[in-house]
Each structure stands twice: as structure tokens, then as C-alpha cells.
């Protein structure tokens, strides 16, 4: 499903501050896998996500999605296949647009935008129904400005926006880290539900040991740009115990 082939990436190349993030990184992710990525600061977790989404391009190497070479496809074209939720709840939605307008933008992620109205009646019912599933009482706040919602509510909606058009790959970059424990738990449960209901191939970065234990069927530990451990569900529990004990 997702293949990274010999990816190399340097920042500030040819300067004194040159920092090699990845050197010949290879990664293969199969359809339906839910991969948890852990690793210290600067290990390259977010860079990995950015390389997959296309917000940064590799110096060398190739990125394949479903056997298709997307290495040179710009971010907005890759968005057809990729749903993304950022750590900062403010990054995933437009504060000055309404909930409904935000969601309607997400409905067109894989389509060409035209001069048809952004929202019609059928969409409205549809979106209401989707919001009901979140169980946060947001279905009656379609006309509310996104900026007036709480961080947890915004992150839940961003998650919905990322999956409204079913993506081939869902990227979650510490998407519950900026939330209070209660909202964090809520958003995480939603994440689990949405992913398993739609069987979406997912990569999730987390610093939270509980989340790493609870979720996912594959665990990757990154350390200075190298994959230090890569284990499936069985090995995960054991490995986590070892890593976090030290």
C-alpha cells in the first residue's frame, strides 16, 4: 500500500548546520495496517509524515502509494489519497468558516472544485448524520464558526474531515497531545472507531505509552532516522515494556 524506497533527506544541506534526517530509509506498509510510530524528539517522526504527505520532498528515493510513484506529486494532489490530522487542533480547520463549510471542503478532497454551490441540502443531512456519530452534540452546531469550538471538538471534526472521503492512508501526528486528558481519550476512542469501521491504513505518531499499547497492530521505533524496532502486534507489548522501562 505505502512504500518508501531508499529515502534520504537532509536539512540545511551543504552548510555547517547540515542535519541528516534519513539515509536510505526503507519502509513498507501493507493495506489495513495500523502503525504506531514512537521515538524521541528529532528522531524524524514528523519528517516521515511530511515526506509521505508531500509537504516536503525527499533528496533522493521514491514514495509509492498503491504501486503508484507519487514522489513528485505535490501535496494537494497527494491529498486525494491521504487524510491528515495535525498535533495542533487549530491547524486542521478554518476558524472563520462554519463547521458545515469546513466539512464541505473536506467532502471535495478528491474532486475538482467547480462553481457549483459548496453545500446543498442533501449534503447538510449527510453531514449532520456524520456529526451525530461523533457523539459530541455537534450535529446542531453546523452554523457555528469553527473558531468558537473547543480544541477537542475541533480535533474530532478534523478527524472526521480527514476520513469523510475515505483516504488510502491516514496520518495522525500526535493528534491528541495538545488536548486535555478527557478530550484526548474521547478523540482517541473516535480514532479507533473510525479506523476499524472503515479499515483505513493508518500511521500514528504518539508519545503516550498507553495509546501505543492500546492501539495499532504494528509498532515502529525510530531513532535518529533509523528504524530501530519494527514489530507486529505480538511483539509490541513486550517491546514497549522494555523500551519504557529504561
Amino acid at each position: 500500500m505505502l512504500k518508501l524506497q531508499n529515502i534520504s533527506k537532509k536539512f540545511a544541506s551543504n552548510s555547517a548546520d547540515e542535519k541528516i534526517i534519513f539515509e536510505n530509509l526503507n519502509l513498507n506498509i501493507k493495506k489495513g495496517e495500523f502503525v504506531i510510530i514512537v521515538g524521541g524528539n528529532g528522531a524524524g517522526k514528523s519528517t516521515l509524515m511530511n515526506l509521505i504527505s508531500g509537504s516536503i520532498l525527499p533528496d533522493s528515493g521514491k514514495v509509492f502509494i498503491d504501486e503508484k510513484d507519487v514522489t513528485n506529486l505535490p501535496e494537494h494532489k497527494r491529498a486525494k489519497f491521504i487524510g491528515r490530522v495535525f498535533q495542533d487542533p487549530l491547524k486542521g480547520s478554518c476558524p472563520n468558516l462554519t463547521v458545515e463549510e469546513n466539512l464541505s471542503l473536506a467532502m471535495l478532497r478528491n474532486k475538482k472544485r467547480t462553481l457549483h454551490f459548496g453545500i446543498n441540502k442533501g449534503d447538510r443531512e449527510n453531514l449532520k448524520h456524520e456529526l451525530e456519530k461523533l457523539n459530541l452534540g455537534l450535529e446542531n452546531r453546523l452554523d457555528a464558526k469553527m473558531g468558537t469550538l473547543s480544541g477537542g471538538q475541533r480535533q474530532a471534526i478534523t478527524l472526521l474531515m480527514a476520513t469523510l472521503v475515505k483516504p488510502k492512508i491516514l496520518l495522525l501526528d500526535e493528534h491528541t497531545a495538545a488536548l486535555d486528558p478527557k478530550s484526548s481519550e474521547k478523540v482517541l476512542n473516535l480514532t479507533q472507531k473510525i479506523i476499524s469501521d472503515n479499515s483505513i491504513t493508518t500511521l500514528m505518531i504518539t508519545h503516550n505509552l498507553n495509546h501505543a499499547t492500546k492501539l495499532g497492530n504494528r509498532l515502529i521505533v525510530l531513532e535518529s532516522g533509523k528504524i530501530k524496532h519494527d514489530v507486529s502486534e505480538e511483539g509490541k507489548r513486550l517491546l514497549l515494556k522494555n523500551i519504557f522501562r529504561n
Binding site: 504527505s53 491529498a79 478554518c94 468558516l97 471542503l105 478532497r109
Partner: peptide, 18 residues
């Protein structure tokens, strides 16, 4: 709508395929 979203949150608009 996409133009308004671009002005409001460009990063999000790109992530939504704009």
C-alpha cells in the same frame, strides 16, 4: 469556499487537496 479557506488556513486547504 476554497478561496476563503486558503485565506483562513492555507496548510489545511492543501491537506484537503486544494
Amino acid at each position: 469556499l476554497a478561496i476563503r479557506a486558503t485565506g483562513d488556513n492555507e496548510q489545511m486547504m492543501r491537506a484537503q487537496g486544494g
